[in-house]
Design a protein around this nucleic acid. Sequence first.
DNA 1: CTGGGTGCAAAAGATTTGCAGTCCG
DNA 2: CGGACTGCAAATCTTTTGCACCCAG
Lengths: 128, 128
Amino acid sequence: MKTLKYSRQRESIKACLMARHDHPTADALYTAIREEYPNISLGTVYRNLNLLVELGEIQKLTCGDGADHFDADTSPHYHFVCRTCGQVKDLRLDSMEEINHLAQEHADGQIESHTIYFYGTCNHCLKN
Amino acid sequence: MKTLKYSRQRESIKACLMARHDHPTADALYTAIREEYPNISLGTVYRNLNLLVELGEIQKLTCGDGADHFDADTSPHYHFVCRTCGQVKDLRLDSMEEINHLAQEHADGQIESHTIYFYGTCNHCLKN
DNA sequence: CTGGGTGCAAAAGATTTGCAGTCCG
DNA sequence: CGGACTGCAAATCTTTTGCACCCAG
């Protein structure tokens, strides 16, 4: 296995992602990070995000709105996607690990994990 | 609201999707349909798939493997994605509508629906 | 030094869209 | 006829990658 080397860009990407709770896309993160590192490239952001996902330090959210979103919170929780404004918000439910076993009974294979996305309209958009 | 007109391409796309149970991507469907209609264009396939999704006649699956998949079965069921071969298979669990209510208690908005994807290794890939 | 990391720009994939021509109602 | 639909190709958008240079260990 290959040895990681320190990179201030990677640290910055991780720190920036941990500091916010809005699950930004790679491009949104790129825009934010450029304020501190104006020369960072989008390719570097993507490379590091993918690396951090592989290391299990962050997770990638594919909620179906075109671009992937990223979340530095790897504790078990789900996501609520507002179909009006596109915001992705955390949704913390009691452990639903049991549904893996439930699904296992009907699955044609070995289930390892699951993902749930809830869709609807967020309170902010409901007011308008 | 605009009135739909008949189109043999759209009929063919829908029929072709209903005939198979492997949740093809737009491109896979395009390849299959070209055997019957060699001149159909990929743009037409996309346009009609999106239209059928809007009409609620089919559903789009965004399981995170790059391309969207389509499913003519709109009855309540979930999907199992093999991380090895990429196949997407149906997974029919007892109604889980109740988790919408469970999630509603913690959500910052009005929940309308949810999607669950299960990930793992299918039996065929486990053997190899 | 050496190999991992970076910036840049080009490439790759998936999906959408503008346009002129075609066909349904 | 009018407007919906199509084929085609160009355009978009997101993400990946090749390459020369840079920097951590």
